[in-house]
Amino acid sequence: MKQLSIAAIKQQLLEQEMSQEFLEQLKRDERKGVQALLRTYERKQQKLALQKNAFQQMSQFERKANAMGKQFVAGIDEAGRGPLAGPVVAAAVILPSDFMLLGLNDSKQLSERMRNAFFTVIKEQAISYGISIIGNDIIDKVNIFEATKLAMKDACEQLKPSPQHVLIDAVKLNDLGCTSEILTKGDQRSISIAAASVLAKVTRDQLMAEIHAEYPAYDFQSNMGYGTKHHLDMLKEHGPSPYHRRSFSPVKESI
């Protein structure tokens, strides 16, 4: 073939699916720039293959349910059980059977940029999703575990169509009206639960940014309500805000 410029080769590697014949020709090209591009391309292909394999592994529970005739499989997860302030947020989501979002994982393992990008994709492509927010006042009345279950069940009940099978991250829910599975570390094992974790985490982070604007002293935008040193120092200095969970020990002690 006519020898392409390094710039043209770079463009082709970025934009097209490369044939094995073309890659073999590049391997015989002695230019250092071409070999550097080829190494970068091969590393990207290896990463892509790993991501595809991981996604397939995380789809096993959904595929198993589909094989049993369960067309609508929902994943449920929460964000915000541990913080000293703010709501607990739960999300439920039903993904289409052909859904593909490489890199999807437990929201805590994703960068903020990736979470926000995935948040948009999941909302756009989901068959249905529900998000439930339970404030600190309810958390103080019923305790954080019961509030988490309330949020999870409410998020699930928002789904239309109703799920035929539900995958839940580590919490048992009763009276769902369908079969369910509880998965330990489910946000790392199921794409549906991982998608729900992204919806819950991003929604809660947005809420904490709004609360931060109202009460900036506690630095909620950075700590998301968790008990960092600065946050605890501000609690001692200013006492709790209206968004603090008064049933949690560090907050209770600051009153």
Rank of each mutant, 00 (worst) to 15 (best):
L95C: 12
A54M: 06
K44W: 08
L235P: 01
R31T: 14
H244T: 05
S222N: 06
R31Y: 13
D154P: 02
K123M: 09
N143L: 01
L23M: 10
G130M: 07
S162W: 00
A155I: 00
S192Q: 04
E24N: 14
S222T: 06
S19G: 11
D77V: 08
I139M: 07
P216K: 01
E237A: 11
P161F: 00
D175V: 01
K185P: 08
L235M: 01
P240V: 03
I139S: 10
Q221Y: 02
S111K: 06
L110I: 06
A49D: 15
F145R: 09
K70F: 06
K160L: 03
R31Q: 15
S162P: 05
L110E: 07
Q16D: 11
D175I: 01
I127N: 11
E15S: 13
Q164V: 00
S249A: 12
V89K: 02
M18C: 15
A213R: 13
M58C: 10
K27T: 15
H230A: 00
P83V: 03
V142H: 02
A36W: 04
N223Y: 05
H212C: 03
D140V: 03
E181R: 06
N105V: 05
I211Y: 15
A49P: 15
L38I: 12
R245F: 05
E42T: 02
Y226T: 04
A67E: 11
M1S: 13
M234L: 02
E146W: 02
F55G: 01
G86K: 10
T203I: 09
A117F: 07
K44F: 13
I127G: 02
L101W: 12
S249I: 03
L199K: 12
L4F: 14
A126C: 14
I193Q: 10
A36N: 14
N66A: 07
L176S: 13
I182K: 12
E78Q: 14
G186Q: 08
D77C: 10
E146P: 00
